[in-house]
C-alpha cells in the first residue's frame, strides 16, 4: 500500500464527519431507505453538532482527571516513600475497571443526581487503569544505565523524575491515555441513560422508536471520533518516541 493512502483515508473520514455534523440534512437521501415511510431519517430532537461537542467535553474532562490521578498515583508508588502503596493502588484502580460503568451510574445517581456528573464519575473510574498501568510499566522499565548515570551525575529525586524519568516514559504514558480516551468515547454513550447530553441520546432514541437510521448515525459518529482521536494520539506517540531517541 502507498504511504499516503492511510492519511488520505483519514482526511476523507474527517471531512465526511464534519460535513455530516454541520449539515446532516444533506445526508437524508442516504439514510432514508433505513426508516419506515413517515419516520424522520435524521435525528431531530437536538443538534447533532452540539451533542457531539458535549460528548467530547464529557470524555475530555473525565480522561483529564483520570490522567492526573493515574499518573500521580503511579509516580507516588514508584518512589521509595510510596512503594508500600503499590498493591493497594493496583487493586483500587483494578476495581475501577472491573466495576461495570452501568453499575457505577446506578450507584452514583442517588448520590449526585441525574445528568453529566454520574457519567463523569463512571468514565473517570473506567479510564484510570490503562493510564496507571502504562505509567507504572514505563517508570519501572527505564534503562538501568541511564538511571544510574542520572544518580551518579548528582541529580536529586525531583530532577531525575522531571528531567529523565517522565520525558523517557512519555510515549508509553500517551499510549495509556489513548486507550482510555477510546474506551471512554464509546462508554460515554450509556451516560444518556441518566440524562447526560452525549451521542448516546441519538442511539437510545433510535432504539426506543425502532429507528435504524438514528442508531446508525449515533454509532457512526462515535466510531469516527474514536478512529480519528486514536490515530492522532498514535501520531503524537510516534513523534515522542522519536524525540526520546529510542528509534
Amino acid at each position: 500500500m502507498r504511504a499516503w493512502l492511510p492519511t488520505a483515508l483519514r482526511g476523507l473520514l474527517l471531512l465526511a464527519l464534519l460535513a455530516f455534523l454541520v449539515s446532516p440534512e444533506s445526508f437524508e437521501p442516504l439514510l432514508k431507505p433505513l426508516v419506515q415511510q413517515d419516520a424522520p431519517a435524521i435525528y431531530n430532537h437536538g443538534s447533532l453538532l452540539s451533542l457531539t461537542l458535549q460528548h467530547l467535553r464529557t470524555v475530555f474532562i473525565a480522561t483529564a482527571a483520570a490522567t492526573i490521578i493515574a499518573i500521580g498515583l503511579a509516580i507516588l508508588v514508584t518512589r521509595p516513600i510510596g512503594a508500600e502503596f503499590l498493591p493497594l493502588s493496583r487493586s483500587l484502580v483494578n476495581i475501577g475497571q472491573t466495576f461495570p460503568p452501568v453499575a457505577v451510574l446506578a450507584l452514583a445517581v442517588p448520590a449526585v443526581g441525574f445528568g453529566e456528573k454520574p457519567t463523569l464519575i463512571a468514565l473517570f473510574l473506567y479510564g484510570l487503569l490503562p493510564i496507571f498501568e502504562n505509567t507504572l510499566t514505563a517508570l519501572t522499565n527505564l534503562p538501568r544505565s541511564v538511571m544510574e548515570a542520572a544518580r551518579g551525575a548528582g541529580m536529586t529525586g525531583f530532577q531525575r523524575l522531571f528531567q529523565v524519568e517522565l520525558p523517557l516514559s512519555l510515549p508509553v504514558i500517551v499510549a495509556g491515555i489513548r486507550l482510555s480516551v477510546v474506551i471512554n468515547l464509546s462508554t460515554a454513550t450509556i451516560g444518556s441513560t441518566v440524562a447526560a447530553k452525549t451521542l448516546g441520546e441519538v442511539i437510545i432514541a433510535g432504539l426506543q422508536s425502532n429507528n435504524l437510521a438514528f442508531i446508525l448515525q449515533g454509532g457512526l459518529i462515535v466510531g469516527a471520533l474514536a478512529i480519528l482521536i486514536y490515530d492522532s494520539l498514535s501520531g503524537v506517540e510516534k513523534l515522542l518516541t522519536r524525540r526520546v531517541g529510542r528509534r
Binding site: 548515570a149 544518580r151 551518579g152 548528582g154 529510542r246
Partner: peptide, 20 residues
C-alpha cells in the same frame, strides 16, 4: 549525596547517556 556526586565524575559501562 547529590552535591558530592556533582563533584565526582562517574562513567559506567554502556555509557548511560540520556537518549532524549
Amino acid at each position: 549525596a547529590h552535591e558530592l556526586r556533582r563533584r565526582i565524575g562517574y562513567a559506567i559501562q554502556g555509557h548511560g547517556l540520556f537518549p532524549h
